[in-house]
Design a protein around this nucleic acid. Sequence first.
DNA 1: TTCCAAAAAGCTAACCGTTAGTGTTACGTT
DNA 2: AACGTAACACTAACGGTTAGCTTTTTGGAA
Lengths: 203, 203
Amino acid sequence: MTVPTGRRERKKAATRQKIADTALRLFLARGYDAVGIREVAAEADVAVTTVFSHFAAKEALVFELDEDFEQRLVRAVTDRAPHEPLIPALRQEIHALVRHCTGDDAAPVWRMIVASPALREYEESMRLRHAESLATAIAADLGLPPATTSCRTIARFVIDAYTLAREAAEPEAAVDEIFQMIEAAWAVARPAQGTTGRGTDRR
Amino acid sequence: MTVPTGRRERKKAATRQKIADTALRLFLARGYDAVGIREVAAEADVAVTTVFSHFAAKEALVFELDEDFEQRLVRAVTDRAPHEPLIPALRQEIHALVRHCTGDDAAPVWRMIVASPALREYEESMRLRHAESLATAIAADLGLPPATTSCRTIARFVIDAYTLAREAAEPEAAVDEIFQMIEAAWAVARPAQGTTGRGTDRR
DNA sequence: TTCCAAAAAGCTAACCGTTAGTGTTACGTT
DNA sequence: AACGTAACACTAACGGTTAGCTTTTTGGAA
């Protein structure tokens, strides 16, 4: 039972990386829609089925780097310091995420995403799944049932903030502006807080 | 230059209707994913290309009835009585829309949509387009530039309200709950109102 | 009435993303 | 050394979608 980096796992990771790199290179060079899966597979010297055994869909090749988005948001809720209120913690995390994807190194990829309707649609759908995870984390943190409406609402508002801020002329200012609105919305939501949560009122 | 209902337009509309009816009937009978476009075309006695000349995609066959959703939201903003505030007008419209799609007659269609990931994804993407239209209408109503962040934010919140309320245990109550949050968010947004709008402050 | 331009519909044939089915190779374990 | 299995390859297909081209229908002009 050798646990760490076996050759098999290394080879698998290498293949995956090779596919992702090849795909991104071709996409950036000639446009996402102009490059087919068969071509990516040929250029990476793998079979088409191998591509789909590593990535769920063609769009997923582009969002490979974006993997930890969901975890970061959830952790911003669960791992925050005691007595730290919820919304500011999320605001800080969204700030970091927006800053990251508007940086110069990520700009070409982002331009490609905006240019392709298929990629935009895929991302939106992905973000909605993230919103569900975030809602669950928030509800758990407050000791509320997982599908509480106010928690789901705030979670979606936070995702909206991320999406809208990126498209704004001044992303950083937009984050603050939208989070002022979210803060106000959360203040009036006041979900009945349970007793199995973290115990201290730091909403 | 005969303007109104020529025979040509009537026949075209009839063909379109026949396709939509056939498709919905087959989808409800055997499941959305189990019925292919070629089968819908054969059953409606038209060519496959004719189906796609009337509907942009397979999913659009299901949302044919939902066509005026966008217009209703926009009109809720533009056609409201003078001095009537914005958010309550939207709340009322969302109430009506939620009531409509949770009614008994629409229930089977709705169940089908929820059961199919492809349809869910398509609907979300559609709603986002609606949010953009709504944002533009709100901005125009206030005499603001079309892409004002606070207007886009509120528009997305309103769409979120529609989506979340439909999935809540008590949809009507959820609409009111979420709109309390939206009202608070809008109150702090306070976008600088221009002078070319409708002139009266009835935000 | 006759004829023409254009809209609507049809047919064929393909493209593209994706998957099922079926091997084959290479690795980790015993 | 032998075995089980994970990774990958190959073929062939399926379903949604579109391009290219022909045929039919229709509204209006000559």
